[in-house]
Amino acid sequence: MDIHPATAVRERAIDVDVILGLVADFEHAQQNERVDDFVALFGENPVWTTGHGKRLDGLEEIASFTAKVLPGAMREATQRYDVARIAFIGPDVAIVNVEQTPITHDGRVIEGAPTGRPFWVLAQDTEWRIVGAQNTQVVEA
């Protein structure tokens, strides 16, 4: 995992740990199809663009969409989320590149399944929360 700017690593170690925890909570919520836990990871007035290009504006739209698609979605397989990069672009704003890997329920990578490269914007008020995200499926050219 890369953390930028490099000089901020020591000062931002707690923030890095919290952000890694947020990604782990995201993974847990999705793997266990916990809609309320998933939605709780978003901040005020977030924007989420799904891997298929659907833009969701605000918590209500994200919650409604998630309630429709998440239950039952992990029946046959799930996803692992690994942080590839964190960049602090302000005292309370970070951008996070995530590697999304399809896995079996026992943790084995599903070879040949499409992967994702989510890009998240996080903001911190009292807690780090997702305020913007683009979930992009990787297509090899």
Rank of each mutant, 00 (worst) to 15 (best):
V47G: 13
G58D: 04
A94L: 08
V35E: 01
K68F: 07
I14N: 13
Q137W: 06
G21W: 07
L41Y: 01
I95C: 12
D57A: 14
I95S: 04
W128Q: 02
D106H: 10
A24L: 03
E111G: 11
G116P: 02
V47K: 14
D2G: 10
R129I: 11
F65E: 06
R34D: 15
P46H: 04
I19E: 01
L22M: 00
V131K: 08
H105Y: 11
F38Q: 03
I3H: 08
A40F: 00
A113R: 14
V131N: 02
A67G: 06
I62C: 07
H4R: 11
V39A: 06
V16I: 10
G21F: 04
N97R: 12
A77V: 10
P114A: 01
Q100D: 08
H52I: 12
R75N: 14
A141D: 15
D2A: 08
R80H: 01
T50K: 09
D125A: 15
G107V: 04
W128M: 09
I19K: 07
V121A: 14
P46Y: 05
V18T: 08
T7K: 13
G90R: 09
Q100L: 13
L70N: 00
D36P: 06
T101E: 05
V138G: 02
E127V: 09
A133G: 12
E61V: 03
V9C: 05
E33G: 08
Q79V: 14
M74H: 09
R117G: 15
G90F: 10
E140P: 11
V139K: 04
D2R: 15
A87Y: 01
E11I: 13
E127H: 13
A87I: 03
R129L: 02
K68G: 09
T7N: 12
T66E: 04
A13Q: 08
A84M: 11
A24H: 04
W120D: 13
D92P: 01
F38K: 04
E99W: 05
N97I: 12
D25K: 15
L41E: 05
T136W: 01
R108M: 03
V131M: 02
I95Q: 11
S64P: 01
R10L: 15
Q31R: 11
G132S: 06
N45A: 15
W48L: 07
A84F: 03
T101Q: 06
F26A: 10
F38N: 00
A141M: 12
G90H: 08
H105R: 00
V131I: 02
S64M: 12
R80A: 08
A6G: 11
R75C: 09
R80G: 03
T49A: 11
A113P: 09
Q100T: 03
R10C: 10
F88M: 08
A84E: 13
D17I: 15
R12S: 00
V138F: 00
T49L: 13
K68Y: 12
T126D: 12
G58W: 11
V121E: 03
A94W: 05
R34M: 14
P114V: 07
A8E: 06
R34L: 10
H4C: 10
A73Y: 14
E61K: 13
A40K: 04
M74T: 10
G107M: 03
F65H: 08
R108Q: 15
F38S: 01
A63V: 00
